[in-house]
Amino acid sequence: MSLDRRQFLKTVSVLTGSAVLGPYTSALASGEFHGWPDRYGMLTDFTECVGCRSCEKACNEVNHLPQPEVPFDDKSVFDTQRRPTAHAYTVVNRYENTGDPGKPIYRKVQCNHCNEPACASACPIHAYTKTPEGPVLYNENLCFGCRYCMIACPFYVPAYDYASAFEPRIVKCVMCYDRIREGKIPGCAEACPTQSVTFGKRSDLLKLAAEKIAKDPERYIDHIYGEREAGGTGWLYISGVPFEQLGFSTDLPEKPMVEEVKGFLSSVPVVFTVWPALFGSIYAASRHHEAYTREEMQHQSKEGGKEK
């Protein structure tokens, strides 16, 4: 942990009363930001996925995660619904296909890399960053483990390492940020045999998804999940069955989660400025009243004595 001079000054200025207002106003101003234009994203096409778990395996390898207890070619994992854990950035779950019972549907679950991530707006220490490239990153060197990001994430993505005594941390997909920076594509997308997990510019992927749906309306339902959900996510999905059948939350607001608290945050400067004035004057008034009553009483008792 290094605390440089600038940061120190910032801290000091935050400590002084007037500057306390600053951060909140800047947080509010950020509301108009619609994301970096060239950011990357991913598109998962559930009609292409065959549940081979190559993505899970590749993810495990490129991110140097611990070997799982059950090998990657074991289908018994599909008997329960899994979620990303402290040891797995991504998992594939199996869902029954109501339209075609012989062909189960597989859903890959991982961080959705939201346009305006709820985890990032939850974090009191700014341990999360939405990078211009698209991935949402987490810095464990800043985290004190409050796990509010996990509360806030509408997709139940961040996992926590509850078994670690001294270095517990949040674990989640990083969209292979380092590989992207090296010009490679994320491990899961590279490993996917059918490119059901596709990597590209988010804007291109949106176009691709729309084209696929338009070209084959029999195959897809007319919805790109992630285009607008929770303010839009970096990871997009298209499917042949309604998303609620695949365990997706379909009641998410279309605005980013942080919008829900902006109203509250905007009241903060008001309280900081109005309250001292209001309660200060009430105090002054009540002091005056007190003094006045005391004087009056003294006066009256004097008058009573004098009998004017």
């Binding site: 939850a122 974090c123 341990a127």
Partner: peptide, 9 residues
């Protein structure tokens, strides 16, 4: 150390 100014927490 870190300032999550948009965070209620």
């Amino acid at each position: 150390v870190g300032f999550g100014t948009a965070s209620v927490l």
